[in-house]
């Protein structure tokens, strides 16, 4: 992933995480894989950025987490949208779409 992609990802990480978790609870490793798969490897989140973002969103009340045992007896921490997060997502999505449309309006007419 190029440097410019990394910068773009940094600015949109919260929205990406909220959008990924809209379809159901995921744990950290799954989020990394899911993001890669859905963006055809264009966006690759670093674990060092993922976990602080997840914890920040949880602290903000947008996500909730819970532990669920794995088959081997250890546990994974799953994240899911809280009611607040679910309510906030449409607004954030609309803001993002307005923003990208505005950027495209400028960049697209070079």
């Amino acid at each position: 992933m190029g440097q410019s992609h990394r910068e773009l990802l940094k600015g949109s990480l919260d929205l990406l995480l909220l959008a990924l978790l809209e379809s159901g609870p995921l744990y950290g490793y799954q989020i990394v894989k899911e993001l890669r798969a859905r963006t055809e490897e264009v966006l690759q989140i670093k674990e060092g950025s993922l976990y602080p973002a997840l914890h920040r969103l949880e602290a903000a009340g947008l996500l909730e987490s819970y532990w669920e045992p794995r088959e081997d007896g250890a546990s994974r921490r799953y994240y899911r949208l809280s009611a607040t997060g679910r309510a906030a997502l449409p607004t954030r999505r609309a803001e993002w779409q307005r923003f990208t449309a505005a950027v495209a309006g400028v960049v697209g007419h070079g």
Binding site: E47, G48, Y51, P52, A53, H55, R56, E58, A59, A60
Partner: peptide, 14 residues
């Protein structure tokens, strides 16, 4: 260290 500090910062509010 950076990850530890970032997580500490993120968790502090919580």
């Amino acid at each position: 260290q950076r990850l530890g500090r970032a997580l500490a910062l993120a968790r502090r509010g919580m």
